[in-house]
Design a protein around this nucleic acid. Sequence first.
DNA 1: GTAAATAATGCACTTCCGTTGCATAGGGCA
DNA 2: TGCCCTATGCAACGGAAGTGCATTATTTAC
Lengths: 138, 138
Amino acid sequence: MDVLEKILENNNIKPTAMRLLVLQFLLNRKVATSLTDVENYFAKSDRTTLFRTLKTFVEKGISHKIDDGTGITKYALCEDNCHCEIDTDLHLHFHCTKCNETVCITEYKIPPIHLPKDYTAENVNLVVKGICDKCNSK
Amino acid sequence: MDVLEKILENNNIKPTAMRLLVLQFLLNRKVATSLTDVENYFAKSDRTTLFRTLKTFVEKGISHKIDDGTGITKYALCEDNCHCEIDTDLHLHFHCTKCNETVCITEYKIPPIHLPKDYTAENVNLVVKGICDKCNSK
DNA sequence: GTAAATAATGCACTTCCGTTGCATAGGGCA
DNA sequence: TGCCCTATGCAACGGAAGTGCATTATTTAC
């Protein structure tokens, strides 16, 4: 059986043609992807379908939403060693203001956050903006 | 001269009636404020004017934009001991998922962020979601 | 003081993105 | 084959940010 199909079925997602294509697209991209990105790539398909496909991926846990401060929701598949889908994990995302791409940086961990008394943390979103490695080496 | 006027004039903002009112409103609120919040409070005024007032405040440096992950842009005046308007400062914002309010937490600093090679950080946005002190003590 | 210039305000409208409702198509199963 | 459930596609909605332009207010020049 196809690797892509396996990924979907392992997460209780019926492997339709569209979903396999979107999954492959996300796998090939190393950066966080917006609905519009997917939409532009699959010009033939409907936005709603793609929207719901991404939503399904998030709900089933093979992808996670990223809020990188641009106001546009991004999606990224978690790598094997990335546990971004777990609420208690600390997400570190880097948004390059030059190429406008957002990447999930998994190799550097976020130090624990200290909060004032009586505050309870459920989720942490850390977005660093700046220039990415590719743009810096140009 | 009025304190409010002084604040505006010190930052090269012409102190119009509307701006003074918005400034006062922001001063009284201890939490981050969205355009809609201001709009609802000043029902008589036009949204565009309020939008541009907030924009002016940000441009002139007496307020800063907050992206708390709700998708709605918030604004907050910096307190005297808060340097949120400077790019190099590390912003820590707390969004309560119960009362839906976002506050600027200035008393706890963010540890320095380590990035992979060739990444340059210009700005850091850290949003912690959870339950705030008020909601926790209810 | 009047006129011209500049800035602020208000209204209308646009755009963008996320989202939902509903009808249709497709695939699995009795 | 026929039924059912899910996925898909089309249309439309809604919220929020933002823009263009005419009007009003305020400052500046004469």
